[in-house]
Amino acid sequence: MGLNVTDLACARGGLAMLEGVSFSLSSGAALVLRGPNGCGKTTLLRTLAGLQPALAGEIDCPPDAIAYAAHADGLKATLSVAENLRFWAAIYGTSDIDTALDQMNLRALAGRAAQNLSAGQKRRLGLARLMVTGRPVWVLDEPTVSLDVASVALFGDIVRHHLAGGGMAVIATHIDLGLPEAEILDLSRFKARFPQAGTGDFDEAFL
């Protein structure tokens, strides 16, 4: 059980952003992706999640292991907290939403419509959604945006709990998550070099 990425290259808008990205994660480990804006963090995460094809390289990971969470939480404003969770549980073929509700301190809010939640509560609901997927590998894009210090700490606890249960996490972030044990990968190292004009490659890619 683990996530092994070897020599991965990914592109955005037809342009190579990253190349030669390699890392491996085993059960209970977390990886924090760093790098300046626009360096390809989101692109890498979307490639890991299978939303876009990799240019080259391999992602070695058991099927149906990755749960992806983007900037947006994917919550429906007019549905209640419990309805939102129950929907994703049904989509992922799990049925237990109670554990997630309890762990995220959402039990009291279960009947409230998602549009009436505060930003922090929404983020917690988004994380609860990850828990109901029952997937071991969490791929998170800026999960702590719009969270205050206390909520960031809560988030750290939840990820740690997930890791303790044998899970894994790949997290792109700018700020300190309070996860000292997490490995840090600086993506600016993997910035793709442009192929030189006039070589065979250029003609197909116009570059």
């Binding site: 979307r46 947006a72 919550l75 994703w88 992922y92």
Partner: peptide, 12 residues
């Protein structure tokens, strides 16, 4: 807009 399409596309 709310991102659930991305999530749906990665769902099983």
């Amino acid at each position: 807009e709310d991102g659930s399409l991305d999530l749906l596309a990665t769902a099983p």
